[in-house]
Simulated assay, not measured.
Amino acid sequence: MIYIFLAVAFSVAVSVLLKVARSRGIDIVQAVATNYVVAALLAVLLLGATPEAAIEAKATWTPLVLLGVLLPAIFLVLARSVRSVGIVRTDVAQRLSLFVSLFAAFAFLGDTLTQAKALGIALALAAVLCVLWRPERGATERGGWAAPLAVLAGFGAIDICFKLVAQAGAPFASALLASFLIAMVLCWIAVLVRAATRAAPVTARSLGFGVLLGAANFANILFYVRGHQALPNSPALVFASMNVGVVVVGTLVGAFGFKERLAPVNWLGIALAIGAIGVMASS
């Protein structure tokens, strides 16, 4: 379980880094671009990934391109979300995104909707409503909903794309590297254009921050994969431990490390999120 603990720690670390980025004068686009350079190098060195296996089948091209766009975009959305609603709500939204891909699985990919899955989806929807409720601003205040809901939808779309790539026969490591490379190229085009137009000069501070972000981002992925490899007969345990762990640790870090205020209804939402993940893991 040490791998799952490390995966949880690095997942929350990504949220913490994005939380402090603005106060440190970090250009998030430059940081995200550098992040993908680091992540791609680590995928080659530690996973032995090669992009060829992922691009040989034409069926992988569309989801890979979508991943190349969605992966950097989700970082920008994550950064916006942790700034506007905090680490707790953002991490819960990220973890509940799995129910978006679950819904897509039975709606479009031929999966069967069981009672357990339906219960999990219902609990997840209730959890989202409770976690995002901000009594001091009103239940429908736009700033309290837009960013975390974009996180929810974005990570769900990313999961669907990875499922489509896997269905086409591409190994996970190869698909990961290919998507990193596409994202890296797109991000660096944006960085160079912004630098050329003097909108955001490249700074060593932002690039160095990107190295930290890339290392934490890849470590989260690596240790999660290692957790599945260490417990090949208990995928549900790994799945539940990772997602519940991030919700719990993210809540502790946000509430006590960054003094994020949570109402009783938000704590109820966190409990419902854990219940939804547990139901999904046991189904």
Score class of each variant (00 low, 15 high):
178 A>W: 07
110 G>K: 15
120 G>W: 04
181 L>H: 03
149 L>D: 12
199 A>H: 12
165 V>T: 12
143 G>P: 02
178 A>G: 01
172 F>W: 13
205 R>E: 10
115 Q>E: 00
162 F>K: 11
185 V>N: 01
187 C>W: 00
117 K>Y: 09
127 A>W: 01
211 V>K: 11
208 G>F: 05
169 G>L: 12
161 C>Y: 03
132 L>P: 05
130 C>H: 06
164 L>Y: 01
112 T>G: 04
210 G>W: 01
200 A>M: 15
174 S>Y: 10
148 P>V: 10
188 W>M: 05
129 L>F: 12
138 G>A: 05
146 A>R: 03
141 E>P: 03
150 A>H: 06
116 A>V: 10
134 R>V: 00
168 A>Y: 06
131 V>C: 09
110 G>E: 02
146 A>Y: 05
150 A>R: 13
133 W>M: 04
177 L>R: 05
130 C>Y: 00
141 E>C: 07
193 V>D: 10
163 K>R: 14
141 E>W: 14
147 A>Q: 05
109 L>A: 15
163 K>H: 09
173 A>D: 12
187 C>R: 13
158 I>C: 03
142 R>F: 11
137 R>L: 14
197 T>I: 08
186 L>I: 08
153 A>C: 11
204 A>G: 02
146 A>M: 08
142 R>I: 13
159 D>K: 14
122 A>R: 08
128 V>D: 00
110 G>Q: 11
194 R>H: 05
208 G>W: 04
192 L>E: 02
169 G>S: 13
110 G>I: 04
